[in-house]
């Protein structure tokens, strides 16, 4: 197992390096240039452009860019953001926290409540409640997240005034406010973006789990358990759920990167200062160092998700374990 894991980790690192190289090449192929995006209305004569390009490193060849980037990575330096004029690592660090908070809570709800509802729907396939559940979650999945987000904002922030319309915190909250006030403030700001994310995503794990559980529910061992008089709850969790986990593990691995970049529109609507909106902005303004830096984080999460999924396969499916 250890040898397999070491091999798998090495594989992930090599794949990540290849992905970063591909990203740098692709970014350089993007039409438009950062200088034009940054200068905006103001022109610049060729001499000034040359000075600025040299200063910002946008005149480097591909090889120079690769060497500079990987050299910097070894020292924890991802360069300077062109649009923000600050170290990329600083900008990413500021945005990663809010993103992980929103993304991890979304995943947590999707993969707990979503999976539980999926199993429940599989065990009650022909009931009206199961059909309604399927219908509502599908609608949530089908409607774009920014529409869901805007609706939630207008209902709960503007009309009812229960929560704030956006942001991560109330920046007017006194720095010496009691912990309870800080907690309430956090929850008030988190509620709507989290609800929008969950509404937009929960249908996938729920339906995946339902389908997988329906298949296992027809297996002979489940029928045998029923014949033995095993309690329905035990049948559900012991005999149906665990064998139906394999596709869910795959899904989890694929969804882990959503932690980082899966909430662009929700972040935009709710002014949530996360990585998704940062990446979208950076791409828009051709802020290449920031795009590549954010891409590196994303690639790391993809590799982590894939690695985690492989490990979980071994846990949930004994036939996958190396001898």
């Amino acid at each position: 197992m250890n040898r397999w894991l070491r091999y798998r980790i090495a594989d992930a690192i090599i794949t990540a390096i290849a992905a970063v190289i591909a990203l740098i090449v692709l970014v350089r192929l993007l039409p438009g240039d950062p200088l034009t995006a940054i200068l905006g209305d103001r022109g610049a004569d060729p001499a000034t452009r040359a000075i600025l390009e040299a200063r910002w490193g946008t005149d480097r060849t591909l090889l120079q860019t690769l060497a500079s980037f990987f050299g910097g990575v070894l020292h924890g330096d991802l360069g300077i953001s062109l649009s923000e004029q600050r170290p990329v690592t600083t900008v990413l660090a500021e945005r990663l926290g809010p993103t992980l908070l929103l993304g991890s809570l979304t995943l947590l709800i999707d993969f707990t409540i979503g999976l539980a509802l999926g199993v429940w729907a599989a065990l009650h396939p022909d009931t009206r409640r199961a059909r309604l559940l399927g219908l509502f979650t599908l609608i949530g999945y089908a409607v774009p997240s920014f529409v869901v987000g805007t609706l939630l904002m207008w209902i709960f922030a503007v009309k009812l005034g229960w929560v704030d319309s956006g942001g991560l915190t109330d920046t007017l909250l006194a720095s010496d406010a009691p912990a309870s006030a800080v907690l309430v403030d956090r929850l008030k700001h988190l509620a709507l973006p989290l609800a929008a994310m969950v509404i937009a995503t929960i249908a996938v794990p729920l339906r995946q789990q339902r389908t997988a559980a329906l298949e296992t529910a027809a297996q002979p061992w489940v029928l045998a358990a029923r014949a033995r008089g095993v309690r329905p709850a035990a049948i559900a969790w012991r005999h149906c759920w665990r064998p139906a986990l394999t596709p869910i593990v795959t899904l989890f691995g694929l969804w882990l990167p959503m932690l980082v970049a899966g909430a662009v529109f929700v972040e935009y609507v709710f002014n949530w200062p996360g990585m998704g909106s940062l990446l979208a902005h950076a791409t828009f303004s051709r802020d290449f160092p920031l795009v590549i830096g954010a891409g590196l984080v994303l690639i790391a999460f993809v590799q982590l998700g894939s690695l985690l999924a492989d490990v979980l396969y071994h846990v949930v499916d004994p036939t996958q374990r190396p001898s």
């Binding site: 904002m153 503007v158 704030d164 319309s165 956006g166 942001g167 920046t171 002014n271 200062p273």
Partner: peptide, 18 residues
Amino acid sequence: LLFRTIEDPSARVAAFIT
């Protein structure tokens, strides 16, 4: 004086109305 960043124009309107 607080400069709040709100990118979405409709969210800016909502923040003023609230």
